[in-house]
Design a protein around this nucleic acid. Structure first.
Lengths: 156, 156
DNA sequence: GGTCCATTACTCGGATAGCTGGTGTCCGAGTCGGACGGG
DNA sequence: CCCGTCCGACTCGGACACCAGCTATCCGAGTAATGGACC
């Protein structure tokens, strides 16, 4: 199991936008330049965040992306789900209902698969943990030096 | 993010072996027949469990696989990590150190990346949750009817 | 009858193709800012 | 001096190749049971 690269990229970009804390949009190409990422692909990743309602994009000159809500109102989970999709990583295919002649009636499987239940329960806990942390928490935990150099980079 | 099919297959096979609770090995082909899974690929997945020390395999006639430990001593996490690998789903590539001229000294990044820390913390919680549940828990939660029909299937 | 051995059939294990989904790239539609010309 | 219009350049957004890892399969090495032959 491996998480998409876009999650790391999206999170860093969101934190960067939280640092700038301005209503002025930032071009995705500029964000890509900061982290030396392929500009077109980063753009693709950020599109998912726009669809998820986390970023809003403006076209034209002086356009770009900005946070749709205050950083305190955006959680890590929001970003992860927007990019990775909201499906559970573990998907139950009900293989317990197959085989052995497949003659068992459906009434035998009314109670949910215990394996899927346990896996989903763990995943809900994981999501709950991610929901606890907001972009503002991450932004404020960074050393001042990093924030200053980033602001300086985007000011030019 | 999507978990491998092999995890579901491996878990179901392990629970089945826990139901049989016998020291006699079960051929992987027979396990595949129970759930109508492609026999060669299931064998490949179970190989990972053998390497992880969860199953032991015997060759030759009357050979097969059996649990290496009592079901109470095998957690969901053991199975998941054996098949999916023990790496974290979220991998930090330290993109924060790139870009902006890359002139920042390494001393600026002594404290770990807050994003990676939060993601790993959530994943540790996920693993902790999976470690709480053992194969014995899952095996005992199943309805007696399912256990009986499975035992009957493997007795023949 | 007991023991040893060759046969045999069955098992796992690793090496080999196919394919979906993530990765990376490109170009076009749309839009805002600014400059120019006219009033 | 102010306003309307035109132009230009910059932005996002979706459509198009490429590659890794999961999915699926096959065949060979190895081993334990089994049957027969011999003592």
């Amino acid at each position: 199991m491996r998480m998409s690269e876009g999650v790391e990229w999206g999170l860093h970009c969101c934190v960067t936008l939280a640092w700038l804390e301005a209503g002025t949009p930032v071009p995705t190409a500029r964000l890509a330049a900061q982290y030396e990422l392929p500009p077109p692909y980063l753009s693709k990743c950020l599109q998912a965040l726009v669809r998820g309602g986390i970023l809003v994009s403006s076209a034209g000159k002086k356009g770009g992306v900005r946070l749709a809500r205050p950083p305190t109102e955006i959680s890590l989970l929001d970003v992860v789900l927007a990019i990775e999709g909201s499906d559970y990583a573990f998907r139950c295919n009900e293989i317990r209902q197959r085989g052995m002649g497949s003659s068992a009636p459906a009434s035998d499987f009314l109670q949910p698969c215990a394996i899927a239940a346990a896996m989903h329960e763990a995943e809900r806990g994981w999501r709950k943990e991610l929901a606890k942390t907001s972009l503002a928490d991450l932004a404020s935990s960074a050393p001042r030096k990093a924030v200053d150099s980033t602001r300086h980079f985007f000011a030019s």
